[in-house]
Structures are given as C-alpha cells and as structure tokens.
C-alpha cells in the first residue's frame, strides 16, 4: 500500500531566499529548508550519525578530492557541516562526503504562489 503524501506549507519563497536556511517544524518534525543557488531543498534536522541537529551546522564549501598536497576549493555553499562531529553533507544530494551509504533524510519541495511546501 502506498503511503499517502501530503504537502505542508513551510515558508515563503521570500523568507527562504533571504535567509538561505530556515529550520521549520512540519508535522512535529524539524526540517531544514535550504536555498542553494536557485533550488530549494528540505532535509530532516537529525544527523544519521548521532542524531545531532545537522541542519543547524555551518553552510559552507569544502576541499574537493585532490592529489597529495593539492588543495581545491569547491561546492561553495553546497555543504552543511554537522555541528557535533563535523560530518559534511552535500545539500543537493544529502550524501555524506565520506560514506556514500550515509545520507540525510530528504523531502520533496514544491513552490507555488510564492510559498514553499514540503511533501511528506
């Protein structure tokens, strides 16, 4: 049986564009809304590692995989870094940068009439 999905109003487009990140509560769950470039993403505010409020960590770039003693900056503002243990997650895919099996729980985001909805 397919689970019924509903969408919930979570923020306005203007709010999210200005703040870049909002922590909202939807259906009793904390969700991090992120504006990355033109796109919006919604990730559950629980780190899969140790249940930290992952979405409240710094949003940043990172050092990309490189050759020994080379440093390459990239993914600017596309990374959220968990405030407890520093795990880096890709805000676009939700994936942990070390272990691809580890991923943030994500939700579909819909935009309509200036409002941001999360589909749960």
């Amino acid at each position: 049986m397919e689970k019924t999905q509903n969408r919930y109003e979570a923020a306005t487009v203007e709010e999210l564009r200005n703040a870049k990140r909002l922590i909202v509560t939807v259906k009793g769950m904390e969700i991090g809304l992120f504006a990355v470039g033109e796109q919006f993403y919604a990730w559950r505010n629980i780190c899969p590692h140790a249940a930290a409020p992952v979405c409240q960590g710094p949003v940043c770039g990172t050092r990309l995989p490189s050759l020994v003693y080379e440093y390459k900056y990239g993914k600017d503002q596309e990374i959220v870094r968990c405030p407890w243990h520093g795990w880096e997650f890709d805000l676009i895919t939700g994936q942990h940068l070390v272990d691809e099996k580890v991923k943030l729980r994500g939700y579909k985001v819909e935009v309509e009439d200036g409002k941001v909805y999360v589909v749960i």
Partner: peptide
Amino acid sequence: NYKGLRDLVPWLKRL
C-alpha cells in the same frame, strides 16, 4: 576522525 575532518586530508580517497 576522518568522517568529520576529511577536508584536512582531501587526497585520501578511502577510510
């Protein structure tokens, strides 16, 4: 430590 601080050794590709 690597799981949190991999950006200090970006040349490592595995654990």
